[in-house]
Design a protein around this nucleic acid. Structure first.
Length: 545
RNA sequence: GGCCGCGUACCCAAGUGGCCUAAGGGGACGGAUUGCAAAUCCGUUAUUUCGUGGGUUCAAAUCCCACCGCGGCCUCCA
C-alpha cells in the first residue's frame, strides 16, 4: 500500500498518514452543512475535498468510516455560542420560505410550514442530500444505501443527539472543565485546558477580545474568561429546545460535533475535516471539549482544512452577484461532473478561483475522458466476443464503482502496461503527495492523449480497470449529464418553432442551397439556439449565456 | 494590533535548490475534416522568464530579507 502524505493543520507539517487501527478502518469526521439554506459551491468545495480524501484512502486500500453531520439546530445570526444574541437562523429561514410561498416561488413539493423549524431543516437537508449525491459525495450516496438497509446513520443530526450532548456537558461539569454562570448558561472553562489554542495558534494570551466585534459586554461579564464558550443555553423562548439539568434550552454550536463524533467514531479519531474558517473557534473548541470529556490526550490525529473558494477572483457574496449554489448551476445545464472537477482540481490548501470559463474547461476534460471510457468499453467487449465468453462481464457497470474487472473477462497479462495503466501509477503518486489533484489530472490527460498505436497495443480490460480506478477518486464518469428536471422545461411552442426551422434548413441543405441554410441558422441564432450538424442530422441547444 | 497563506503565460493551474531552455487543461493561431460552421483529431504557443528590489549559493520560480498586491482567522461563515 503506497503511503499517503498529508498536511496536518495541528502540526503544521506534511506527515505520512497512518490510521491508528488499520484493521478497524480509518475514522473520519467531516463538518457538514447547516441546513437553513441551500449549500453553495464554497460549501461543496470543502465537502468534495473531504470526499476526494476519503476516496484516495479507499484507492490505497483503506477501509474508511466517514461521518458527516447535518446541523439542523437553529443557531443565532449574531453569535452561535457566546451570547445567543440576534435572531434564530431557522426563524430567518422560515421568513424567507414564507415570503417565497406568498410570491408563489416555492419549489414543487415544498409544502412546509414556515413556523416549523424541524420542517425547514428537513426541507433543506433533503435538498442538500440531493445535491451531494449528484456531485458524488460518497458519504451521501452511502447514507441512502444504509437507510434502505436500516443501518445506523453516518450523517447524524444534532437534534437527534441531544442526550449525548447533555451527557458530555455533564461530564465536563463533573470534571471541572465547565461551569454554570450567573446567567444560567453553561460555559467551557478554557483555562482548564492548557492546550487550548494549539490547533489554531490562537492561544489565550494572543486572542484579542472582541476583535470580531460580535461580543456582548453583559454576556462577557458572567464568564470566568472572555474566551470561555457556550455549551448549553437555557432559553424557554428558543424555537428548538430540550430539557437538561441546566434548564430547558439548546446546545452550544461546538458541542454538537464533539458529541456526534464520539457517538459514532469513538473517543479518538484519525481524521477531521472542515473549511478553513472552522479552525477557530469551532475545531479549537471541539478539541478542548473532546479531550476534557474523554480524558484522552488527543481527539483527531490529523486535521484537514480546505481553503476558501473565490469566484472570478473575488470573495463570493450575494451582493456581488457571484454567489452560486450547486442547484443554480445544475439549472443552467452544468453537469455535476464538470462542477465536481472544477471545485476539486485546485489544491485544497490554495484559495481556488471558481470561474465560468474554468467550468467549461472542466466540461471539455470530462467529455474527453468519457469518450476514452466508451472506447475502452467497446474494445474490451470485442475482446470478450473474440474469446467467446458471453456472460455478464461487468463492463456495463456504471463507472465510479469497483475498478477490478470481472474474472469472466479476458485479461491479457502478457501485454506491457498501456497508457492508462502507466498513468494510474503517476496518478496515485500525485494523490499520495498531499492530494495533488492537479498533477493527478495531468497524468490522466496525458494517458488520454497518447498515440493511438499505444492504446491499441494495450490490453483493453486492464486499461479500463486503470481508468475506472482513477475515476474512483475523481468521480466524474457517471455524472456527465445535465441534471434532469433541474432546468425549467422548454416551452413546447418554442420547441415546435425551432424544430420547424431545423426541418426547413435540412431541406435547404439537401438541395445544397447553402445560402438558404445559413439564413435559417442565423434565424435560429437570433432565437438563442445553436445548431450542430452531425451524422444523424442536426441537433440544437441553447447558446451558452 | 496578533497569527497565517498566496502572487507562475491571455485564463485556470502544477512545479518548493541542479532532470525547469517551467507539467496539464482552456484560449489563440496553423493544419486535417466539414458546403461553411460546430464537434473531433494533429501541430505551434513562457528561451536569462516565475509580483518588485536586494541577498545566500558553483547553481534559485524554489532558501533569506525588504517592499508592493491579494486572501484567511482572531467568537456568523465551508
Amino acid at each position: 500500500m503506497p503511503e499517503l502524505r498529508l498536511h496536518n493543520t495541528l502540526t503544521r507539517r506534511t506527515e505520512t498518514f497512518a490510521p491508528r487501527d488499520p484493521a478497524h478502518g480509518v475514522t473520519f469526521y467531516s463538518c457538514g452543512p447547516t441546513v437553513y439554506d441551500d449549500a453553495h459551491i464554497g460549501n461543496f468545495r470543502s465537502f468534495l475535498n473531504a470526499d476526494v480524501l476519503r476516496r484516495t484512502l479507499e484507492l490505497l486500500g483503506h477501509r474508511v468510516v466517514h461521518v458527516m453531520n447535518i446541523t439542523d439546530v437553529g443557531h443565532m445570526t449574531d453569535d452561535a455560542n457566546a451570547d445567543g444574541g440576534g435572531e434564530d437562523k431557522m426563524a430567518v429561514a422560515g421568513r424567507r420560505i414564507a415570503e417565497a410561498k406568498k410570491a408563489g416561488k416555492l419549489p414543487a413539493g415544498a409544502e412546509i410550514d414556515p413556523a416549523d423549524p424541524y420542517a425547514i431543516a428537513e426541507f433543506y437537508a433533503g435538498r442538500f442530500l440531493e445535491d451531494a449525491r449528484l456531485l458524488g459525495l460518497k458519504v451521501a450516496l452511502e447514507e441512502q444505501a444504509r437507510a434502505a438497509k436500516g443501518a445506523p446513520t453516518l450523517m447524524p443530526r444534532p437534534t437527534r443527539c441531544i442526550p449525548q450532548m447533555v451527557e458530555m456537558i455533564g461530564s465536563l461539569v463533573a470534571r471541572g472543565h465547565a461551569y454554570q454562570a450567573k446567567d444560567g448558561a453553561v460555559y467551557f472553562d478554557v483555562r482548564s485546558f492548557p492546550a487550548y489554542g494549539r490547533l489554531s495558534g490562537n492561544t489565550l494570551d494572543q486572542l484579542r477580545e472582541g476583535a470580531g466585534e460580535r461580543i456582548d459586554a453583559a454576556n462577557q461579564a458572567v464568564k470566568r474568561h472572555p474566551a470561555d464558550f457556550l455549551l448549553w443555553k437555557p432559553d424557554p423562548r428558543h424555537l428548538m429546545r430540550w430539557p437538561s439539568p441546566w434548564g430547558e434550552g439548546y446546545p452550544g454550536w461546538h458541542i454538537e460535533c464533539s458529541a456526534m463524533a464520539r457517538m459514532l467514531l469513538g473517543d479518538e479519531i484519525d481524521l477531521h475535516s472542515g473549511g478553513e474558517d472552522n479552525i477557530f473557534p469551532h475545531h479549537e473548541c471541539e478539541v478542548a471539549q473532546s479531550c476534557c470529556a474523554t480524558g484522552h490526550p488527543s481527539f483527531a490525529h490529523t486535521w484537514f482544512h480546505t481553503r476558501h473558494l473565490q469566484v472570478e477572483g473575488e470573495k463570493m457574496s450575494k451582493s456581488k452577484g457571484n454567489f452560486f449554489t450547486a442547484r443554480d448551476l445544475f439549472a443552467k445545464g452544468v453537469t455535476p461532473a464538470a462542477l465536481r472537477l472544477e471545485l476539486v482540481r485546485t489544491h485544497y490548501r490554495s484559495n481556488a478561483n471558481f470561474t465560468l470559463q474554468g467550468l467549461q474547461d472542466c466540461q471539455r476534460m470530462v467529455d474527453r475522458w468519457s469518450r476514452a471510457h466508451a472506447q475502452l468499453v467497446a474494445r474490451a467487449r470485442e475482446d470478450r466476443a473474440d474469446s467467446g465468453r458471453a456472460d455478464d462481464d461487468g463492463l456495463s457497470r456504471s463507472p465510479g464503482h469497483a475498478p477490478a474487472p470481472s474474472p469472466a473477462v479476458a485479461v491479457d497479462e502478457s501485454l506491457p502496461p498501456g497508457p492508462f495503466e502507466r498513468a494510474l501509477a503517476a496518478f496515485t503518486d500525485a494523490l499520495c503527495d498531499d492530494l495533488n489533484v492537479a498533477r493527478a489530472v495531468a497524468a490522466l490527460n496525458e494517458a488520454v492523449a497518447a498515440k493511438p498505436a499505444e492504446h491499441e497495443a494495450a490490453c483493453p480490460v486492464r486499461e479500463l480497470g486503470s481508468l475506472l480506478a482513477m475515476d474512483s477518486v475523481l468521480g466524474v464518469l457517471g455524472r456527465n449529464a445535465p441534471v434532469a428536471g433541474a432546468a425549467p422545461a422548454e416551452d413546447p411552442a418554442f420547441v415546435a418553432q425551432v424544430e420547424s426551422l431545423i426541418a426547413t434548413r435540412a431541406a435547404a441543405r439537401a438541395a445544397k442551397d447553402w445560402a438558404a441554410s445559413d439564413r435559417v441558422r442565423d434565424q435560429l441564432a437570433a432565437l438563442g439556439v445553436t445548431v450542430k450538424d452531425g451524422p444523424q442530422g442536426a441537433t440544437w441547444s441553447r447558446a451558452k449565456p
